[in-house]
Write a protein that binds this DNA or RNA. Structure first.
Length: 470
RNA sequence: GGCGGAGUAGCCAAGUGGCAAGGCAGGGCUCUGCAAAAGCCCCAUUCGUCGGUUCGAUUCCGACCUCCGCCUCCA
């Protein structure tokens, strides 16, 4: 039994099978950030989810090619450019850099390919041209190019693959900009937007005049460029199902580059949103957290990652600071166990224990059931602790346990605690240990108090004292 | 209004037609110079509410309540 995964396209949990005839290589595209601001914790839930998918596929022996786009042309970006007076590149590179810093703090594996929309205008124009040739796109009086859903459907394509759609029911949005009136039908969407005065210097030449790409087209152009016209996995937040991903399918399948019978994307995976303190995260409610806010409050990236991996990806996750503190506690338990195992194992090397891996794999194969996966981990931790306490763990056994953990952590991506203990703290700890040996407990306790004042806690173990951040 | 997701202990969160995993927090004990950590034990007669099907439902069906998402550029 291999990995089973929920596919939004079929609305079912189904076995994962790569398109690659050898069954090894997997193409995976994840909608990346729009770089107009610092990423918030909700954004990162989705990226941690995508990272988990990639890591688990690799754990399962697949060779994954992971592509994540950077959206660096878009309404909010253009507004930012206008307001700051920076160039497009200056403006977006600042936030893109911040994004990759945040991604590293959360231990996200770097995608193999990170294309920027603004650097793929040529590919985008070519794709729009092809859609024009196929008769699925039209130039409107305002100079923009739109995708005609009606013509696409008349040609035998299906619009509405990811959700039940009643196009007549589509309620017009509150904002109706002038170009909306230029479309043939309300549901048609822009492939190319004619340059407007607000765009300032953000525009490119095209066969239809100056302008910029529509929102969805970059993902079609770049995913097909780097993964081919038909690939395995496409992921994103659930809010992207419509219209973004639906339109992406229309553009990509409208280009008709896929081998016959093959869809643009085989498996669509969508992550549920995050709630904060039980409510939708919003700036006006004051429950809006960027990742940087949390790091600045002293939470470690791995603690945040742990919390984001504590709920199933298709369920809403309620993010709270209390939850983050609970994550810290759970991680500490795990870290302590691993530290003890390391002390016992010494230099010993061994093959991984099979047991925790089997249980973990069985859990994760079932649509990435992380909760059952964690249960496997913590039951295993209890077993190891018991063996350690009873002194019945040989260095080889400890090494085998650690090897198993390394396999598990190739998926969890927690790594080791990042904090280095400063030399003066270690010196105090040594001093206290000397006092203890001399049975000068008053002095030992005084030093412990001093360490606590400095924010460090000391624990005496059979292998000597351990110092931990309080 | 349409479509979709969710409601399980103080908090987070699995799961199953037959008497409810795991984590955090809390309580007791053991160990420890004292602590901490760890170990052992305890901590939901109950799974949003009300009906129905069934020998038996948290799990299936129906209604209702609440929350969340999408319905044109929000992960």
């Amino acid at each position: 039994m291999g990995l089973q995964i929920f596919n939004t396209r079929t609305r079912r949990v189904e076995p994962f099978k790569p398109l690659d005839p050898s069954g090894r290589r997997v193409g995976m595209y994840c909608c990346g950030p729009t770089v107009y601001d610092y990423g918030h914790i909700g954004n990162f839930r989705t990226f941690v989810f995508a990272d988990l998918v990639r890591r688990y596929l690799e754990f399962r022996g697949y060779e994954v090619r992971h592509v994540m786009n950077i959206t660096d042309v878009e309404d909010k970006i253009i507004r930012g450019v206008r307001e700051t007076g920076l160039s497009l590149q200056e403006y977006t590179s600042r936030y893109e850099k911040a994004f990759w810093e945040d991604a590293a703090a959360l231990h996200l594996l770097t995608p193999h390919c990170r294309p920027r929309a603004a650097e793929h205008i040529g590919e985008i124009i070519k794709l729009v041209q092809r859609l024009m040739e196929r008769g699925f796109a039209y130039k409107a009086p305002d100079g923009s190019v739109y995708f005609s859903i009606e013509r696409y459907c008349r040609a035998g394509h299906r619009y509405g693959q990811l959700l039940n759609l009643d196009l007549d029911q589509l309620r017009p949005g509150a904002r109706v900009s002038s170009d909306e009136y230029a479309k043939d039908a309300a549901a048609d969407f822009a492939l190319w937007k004619a340059r407007s005065p607000e765009d300032g210097e953000v525009y490119w030449e095209s066969p239809w005049g100056e302008g910029r790409p529509g929102w969805h087209i970059e993902c079609s152009a770049m995913s097909m460029k780097y993964l081919g016209p038909s690939f395995d996995l496409h992921l994103g937040g659930e809010d992207l199902i419509f219209p973004h991903h639906e339109d992406e399918i229309a553009q990509s399948e409208g280009a008709e580059l896929q081998p016959s019978g093959r869809p643009f994307v085989n498996y669509w995976l969508h992550g549920a949103h995050l709630l904060v303190e039980g409510r939708k995260m919003s700036k006006s409610l004051g429950n809006f957290f960027t990742l940087r806010d949390l790091l600045a409050q002293g939470f470690a990236g791995r603690e945040i990652r742990f919390l984001l991996l504590s709920a199933h990806y298709r369920d809403p996750l309620n993010f709270t600071l209390q939850g983050l503190r609970a994550a810290r506690g759970a991680l500490e338990r795990l870290d302590d166990c691993l530290q003890s195992l390391r002390e016992i194992a010494g230099d010993a090397e061994a093959e991984p224990q099979p047991e925790p891996l089997d249980r973990f794999t069985a859990a994760m194969d079932e649509n990435l059931n992380v909760s059952a996966g964690w249960a496997a981990v913590f039951d295993w931790v209890r077993e190891q602790n018991r063996a350690i306490r009873e002194g019945r763990l040989t260095p080889n056994q400890a090494a085998a346990a650690l090897a198993a953990w390394r396999r598990l952590d190739s998926v969890w991506g927690l790594g080791e605690p990042e904090e280095k203990v400063p030399e003066e703290i270690l010196a105090l700890a040594r001093e206290r240990q000397e006092a203890r040996k001399a049975r000068d407990f008053q002095r030992a306790d005084a030093i412990r108090e001093e360490l606590l004042r400095r924010g460090w806690r000391v624990e005496d173990t059979p292998k000597g004292p351990r110092v931990k951040r309080n």
